[in-house]
Simulated scan of single mutants.
Amino acid sequence: MTQDYYVEKFGQGDPILFLPAAGFSGNEGFKIAEHLSDRFETHMIDLPGFGKSKGIETKVSSIKLANWVKDYLDEQHIEKANLIGHSLGGAILLNFAVHYPDKVNKLVLLDQGHKPFPRVPKSEFGAFAYFFPLLNMLVNLFGKSFLNKLAPLFTQDGEQKVDNDEIRKQFCKQASIEEDDYVRLAFENRADFSVEALNLLFGYYKLNLPNLLKKVTVPTYLVYGTFEGLNEKEYINTKRQVEKLHKHNLPITFQPLKGGHYVHWNQNFAWDELERFLLKNSEVSFVV
């Protein structure tokens, strides 16, 4: 643990940085860390402003996200590392890989980068999402003073924060995953919300993820949920967006997985393929 980053480390070997989805702590990646523990030491880091990591207080931009990751690597004296990120965590690592490709060995994106974040993010914020474009404009105009007023609207009350069987079961049903110890661990350690977390979400909202992905130059493994049989509209959109990316000559291995957004909790996740990708021509070094 450092002053600005809350980190849990697991395994032995070359370092992997894991960043989770919004709302979860770094140990959302514990299933990944456990599967790779014989060859890699996974650094499971809380997102800035979520959980116990210090937030980014100024306006969030692509380079600030990249520098947030770079500062951690510098603190740990890691010259070059493997990166694994899910959802918002994947977006942060994608920014880092674009700005600092010489510090990246391999990049693994878990259901991230291939689709733009929706202008009206209904699946994330429900009916409140219809106000998001307007709120984004007001955040740009008034900055942190407006975020301070806005944050209570996004903060769940105490009753909603209680982690019970019904909440987990509903989550697993909607995500089309099986409840297991890894899911329970992640729910027991859900990240606390803060003004800095909201600041991060609005920075994320402004990113053009497919354009960033087209700029990537490092070997990348993209595991994405197809949403086949779960959400017909999202299935069609995912297929169309991936087909667009295939038209470009990108250093990306695309790995479709029948299921939803939480691909690493999908029982059909190809762990051998992930490890093979990470180990192929592996080159990770430390600053002495």
Results as ranks from 00 to 15, higher is better:
residue 197 A to K: 07
residue 180 D to W: 06
residue 173 K to R: 13
residue 153 L to P: 04
residue 151 A to C: 09
residue 205 Y to Q: 06
residue 130 Y to N: 09
residue 200 L to Q: 03
residue 136 N to M: 03
residue 165 D to Y: 09
residue 147 L to C: 04
residue 198 L to G: 03
residue 183 V to W: 01
residue 166 E to R: 13
residue 198 L to S: 02
residue 166 E to Y: 09
residue 192 D to M: 04
residue 187 F to D: 09
residue 185 L to I: 09
residue 195 V to F: 06
residue 186 A to V: 02
residue 134 L to S: 08
residue 154 F to M: 00
residue 194 S to T: 13
residue 160 Q to S: 13
residue 181 D to V: 15
residue 133 P to M: 11
residue 166 E to H: 10
residue 158 G to Y: 06
residue 136 N to Q: 08
residue 129 A to I: 02
residue 211 N to Q: 15
residue 189 N to Y: 01
residue 129 A to Q: 00
residue 200 L to S: 02
residue 172 C to S: 10
residue 174 Q to A: 15
residue 196 E to D: 15
residue 169 K to L: 13
residue 186 A to G: 07
residue 166 E to D: 08
residue 148 N to E: 12
residue 197 A to E: 04
residue 131 F to S: 14
residue 174 Q to S: 15
residue 213 L to Q: 07
residue 167 I to H: 10
residue 139 V to C: 06
residue 173 K to E: 15
residue 181 D to T: 14
residue 140 N to I: 02
residue 189 N to I: 01
residue 159 E to R: 08
residue 170 Q to I: 11
residue 159 E to D: 12
residue 197 A to G: 11
residue 142 F to K: 12
residue 150 L to V: 09
residue 129 A to E: 00
residue 133 P to K: 13
residue 178 E to Y: 02
residue 170 Q to K: 11
residue 164 N to E: 02
residue 139 V to Y: 12
residue 144 K to C: 01
residue 182 Y to T: 12
residue 193 F to C: 01
residue 201 L to M: 15
residue 134 L to K: 06
residue 178 E to A: 12
residue 188 E to G: 10
residue 180 D to G: 08
residue 185 L to K: 13
residue 214 K to G: 00
residue 187 F to P: 10
residue 156 Q to T: 10
residue 207 L to P: 03
residue 162 V to L: 11
residue 173 K to T: 10
residue 189 N to T: 07
residue 168 R to E: 07
residue 134 L to P: 04
residue 197 A to V: 03
residue 198 L to T: 03
residue 171 F to S: 11
residue 213 L to M: 06
residue 133 P to A: 10
residue 199 N to R: 02
residue 148 N to P: 00
residue 192 D to N: 14
residue 190 R to P: 04
residue 211 N to K: 14
residue 157 D to S: 05
residue 205 Y to T: 07
residue 153 L to Q: 08
residue 131 F to P: 04
residue 171 F to T: 04
residue 202 F to A: 02
residue 142 F to A: 12
residue 179 E to M: 14
residue 211 N to C: 06
residue 154 F to V: 01
residue 181 D to M: 12
residue 201 L to I: 15
residue 134 L to C: 04
residue 153 L to I: 05
residue 133 P to T: 14
residue 170 Q to M: 13
residue 207 L to E: 02
residue 166 E to W: 07
residue 164 N to P: 07
residue 150 L to T: 05
residue 166 E to N: 12
residue 209 L to F: 03
residue 130 Y to T: 12
residue 170 Q to P: 01
residue 207 L to I: 04
residue 187 F to A: 06
residue 209 L to G: 06
residue 166 E to G: 01
residue 163 D to H: 02
residue 141 L to W: 14
residue 191 A to E: 01
residue 143 G to S: 07
residue 186 A to H: 05
residue 169 K to P: 02
residue 214 K to T: 10
residue 192 D to V: 11
residue 153 L to S: 10
residue 206 K to G: 10
residue 206 K to D: 13
residue 183 V to I: 15
residue 144 K to Y: 12
residue 184 R to G: 00
residue 130 Y to E: 07
residue 213 L to R: 03
residue 208 N to G: 02
residue 205 Y to K: 06
residue 161 K to M: 11
residue 203 G to I: 02
residue 149 K to H: 04
residue 184 R to C: 05
residue 201 L to Y: 05
